[in-house]
């Protein structure tokens, strides 16, 4: 019989994988989501249409399936092994799938936030001789961030729980680790994984509340 502290230690280690996937996904999907949002709003119609079609496909299919496809497709298409080999290949593939998936969700939140800023703000910038990028970064962006924070906190909270989907390509994240004990007839490790998520989501909730508070000094 394995002792409790060893089990908790191993669960904690495997939750590190969930956190890594979470962090990398956020790091890359936020800027990528902004790029996708700007493409979807492009006045160049073909680009806007292709982008919207892409977002539809990504949001319209299960993330779990996307992880599988990204991991296996290069091999099936005989494109070599772009993800490398072994555990790190699986993790790379999962991270890429997560980044693309979340970037698409974020892009829709960004698009809503950007379009929610009154047109007069950009026009005020224009008549003051500001460039398009100055208007975006100096005038619009912070107002967008303030508007989208509540929706973003939802997505980010969903993300940490979604990281468990990575076990579909045998990434030993926390639930997969716990299930090994379930297979040995020990059920409590699986149940206890909920606590890891709960605590982390609690921290995220506090963090978002803090950010919202920080932006309370102005009204949009």
């Amino acid at each position: 019989m394995t002792n409790v502290s060893t089990i908790i230690g191993r669960l904690t280690d495997s939750f590190g994988l969930n956190l890594q996937l979470f962090g990398l996904t956020l790091l890359f999907s936020l800027p990528l989501g902004l790029v996708i949002a700007l493409c979807a709003m492009s006045r160049f119609r073909p680009l806007a249409l292709i982008t919207k079609g892409f977002v539809w496909v990504i949001r319209g299919t299960p993330l779990m399936l996307q992880v599988i496809i990204i991991f296996f497709a290069p091999g099936l298409l005989e494109l070599g092994a772009p993800w490398g080999s072994g555990a790190s290949a699986r993790f790379t593939a999962a991270t890429i799938a997560f980044i693309i998936n979340y970037a698409c969700y974020f892009s829709e939140i960004f698009r809503g936030g950007i379009q929610g800023v009154p047109l007069g703000q950009a026009e005020a910038g224009q008549v003051l001789g500001m460039t398009r990028s100055q208007i975006f970064f100096r005038v619009t962006l912070l107002q967008v961030i303030k508007r989208i924070l509540p929706a973003m906190s939802n997505e980010v909270i969903t993300l940490i729980k979604d990281t468990s989907l990575a076990r579909i390509i045998a990434i030993k994240e926390i639930i997969m680790m716990a299930q090994e004990y379930t297979a040995q007839g020990l059920i409590w490790p699986l149940f206890s994984t909920g606590i890891f998520f709960l605590v982390f989501v609690g921290l995220l909730t506090l963090l978002f509340a803090r950010m919202e508070k920080k932006l309370e000094y102005f009204r949009v």
Partner: peptide, 21 residues
């Protein structure tokens, strides 16, 4: 056009001040 705009100033009906500044 951006430079040409500077010949003119415009005060809007709804002000359009930048709220975060």
């Amino acid at each position: 056009i951006r430079t040409k705009r500077l010949n003119f100033g415009l005060v809007f009906q709804a002000f359009h001040l930048f709220p975060q500044y």
